[in-house]
Design a protein around this nucleic acid. Structure first.
Length: 421
RNA sequence: GUGGGCGUAGCUCAGUCGGUAGAGCUCUGGAUUGUGGCUCCAGCGGUCGCGGGUUCAAAUCCCGUCGCUCACCCCA
């Protein structure tokens, strides 16, 4: 039996990889402007890191982690998200240096054992950003505006920034109990799903897709009306700073995050063009996580965005300036040209050109076909005549025009003609 | 974990009432001795997901199974 890739994982093939590289290059270009530097983290960690940070009772920890014992008997987990590892590294390497804020981003694969569907894989890639060391709403808004600038640079449209406040460790549990009590009053009107989950996850009832539940939800209390004074003040500052940056957003009072460690600001960026899994990015403030992982009190703000989902949204068709195909395809005719062809390819590559060729030394026709298929901008033809005259035929594949060119002028000629077209 | 849809050539798909497979694209070669794309011609390519059953006969009907996909759930 032929071995297939594991369910829920995907190969990124050479025809597509340029999209990923492009997105990553934009991240590498924009994030440092805001002071973020890359950190590379292991993809597996001590299982306890995730159960302690994400929350024992979350779906991720309860049923979605790839957990196994290594040969030494230790429980290892393929990371289901990146923030826990960043915090672990922050604490482990004693990176705290108050009052300065440490800003980092990471790019890499995450693993969750879920049923695959549109926009959801078992191995998927995220870009994550974490700003560690300040409770200031300026940090929240700077990170969110950086994100929106990143999306703008990538040409995304039809995306929506939604924000909410989850309050503090004090006011949130209070609100939860209030909400549960209110839900119980209309329990008979809710869908079976909500009846089953409201005890465990009452916030979910607020954005249930069933119409009946939506009607009930309208009358339920909202977290932002039950914030403690400090959280309310924080949230209002976030909003006015977003306004002052002219960043469009809306408040979604039913926005919830799936990980336990979030407090105060929570946000999501969604797109209508993604299918049911419509969030391209989610994040928020997590002021107590570092302490919970035995570090110093360090309020933080961060987000993670889904690269597969982002790749599907970026309008790559409109991008003209990205090089995807070779500059030159070298066509060699006859045994005599073997060495010269090899040398010319080598020299052009040393000068930075993308050079492709045929290795079968087939007929001119078949080599030209390959040149055409490679989508090279030029073909360079060298046969016995050219070796003798010292001038090679440089053919522009799109226009069909060809010129004779001495070997020492090839590089400048190719560069010149490329710039013209 | 629960539902729906789908598995036929490398890709996209047709295949009638059951009679052991077809198109387009791709690919290879030729028409054009050293010039690609367009056109024309020829050729390569399939255990019809897999296993069982019914039948003289199964891509087609039945049962099972695996895979893909979409949705619920959940989330990036």
């Amino acid at each position: 039996m032929k071995i297939q890739s594991i369910r829920g994982v995907k190969d990124i093939l050479p025809d597509e990889i340029w999209k990923w590289q492009y997105i990553e290059s934009v991240a590498h270009n924009i994030f440092p402007r805001y002071g973020f530097r890359e950190i590379r983290l292991p993809i597996f960690e001590d299982t306890r890191l995730f159960s302690r940070s994400i929350g024992e009772a979350t779906d991720i920890v309860e049923k979605e982690m790839y957990t196994f014992n290594d040969r030494g008997g230790d429980s290892i987990t393929l990371r289901p998200e990146g923030t826990a590892s960043v915090v672990r590294a922050y604490v482990q390497h004693k990176m705290c240096n108050p009052p300065s804020v440490l800003k980092m981003f990471y790019i890499g694969p995450m693993f969750r054992y879920e049923r695959p569907q549109a926009g959801r894989l078992r191995q998927f890639n995220q870009i994550g950003v974490e700003a560690m060391g300040s409770p200031s709403p300026i940090v929240d808004v700077e990170v969110m505006t950086m994100l929106m600038e990143f999306f703008r640079e990538l040409g995304l449209n039809n995306i929506k920034l939604e924000i909410n406040s989850l309050g503090s460790q004090e006011c949130r549990p209070r609100y939860r109990e209030l909400l549960k009590a209110e839900i119980e009053k209309s329990l008979d009107q809710l869908c079976s799903n909500c009846k089953a989950r409201y005890q465990r996850n009452p916030l979910r009832v607020l954005d249930c897709k069933v119409e009946q539940c939506g009607k009930v939800a309208v009358g339920l209390p909202k977290i932002i009306d039950h914030l403690d004074a400090a959280s309310a003040e924080h949230f209002s500052e976030v909003r006015s700073l977003l306004d002052s940056a002219s960043t469009p957003y809306s408040v979604n009072a039913s926005l919830v995050r799936g990980l336990d460690y979030y407090n105060r600001t929570a946000f999501e960026v969604t797109s209508k063009n993604l299918g049911a899994q419509n969030a391209i990015c989610g994040g928020g403030r997590y002021d107590t996580l570092v302490e919970e992982l035995d570090g110093p009190s360090t309020p933080c703000f961060g987000f993670a965005l889904g690269l597969e989902r982002l790749v599907s949204l970026v309008p790559f068709n409109d991008m003209k300036n990205l090089q995807k195909y070779p500059d030159v395809f070298i066509v060699c005719l006859g045994e005599e040209t073997k060495t010269t062809g090899f040398q010319i390819a080598h020299e052009l590559r040393l000068k930075g050109f993308w050079v492709e060729r045929d290795y079968e030394m087939g007929s001119m026709k078949s080599q030209m076909r390959k040149a055409n298929k490679s989508q090279s901008r030029f073909s360079l033809i060298l046969g016995e005549n050219e070796i003798r005259s010292g001038k090679f035929v440089l053919k522009h594949m799109e226009t069909g025009e060809q010129i004779e060119c001495p070997v020492e002028e090839l590089a400048t000629e190719i560069a010149k003609l490329s710039a013209d077209s």
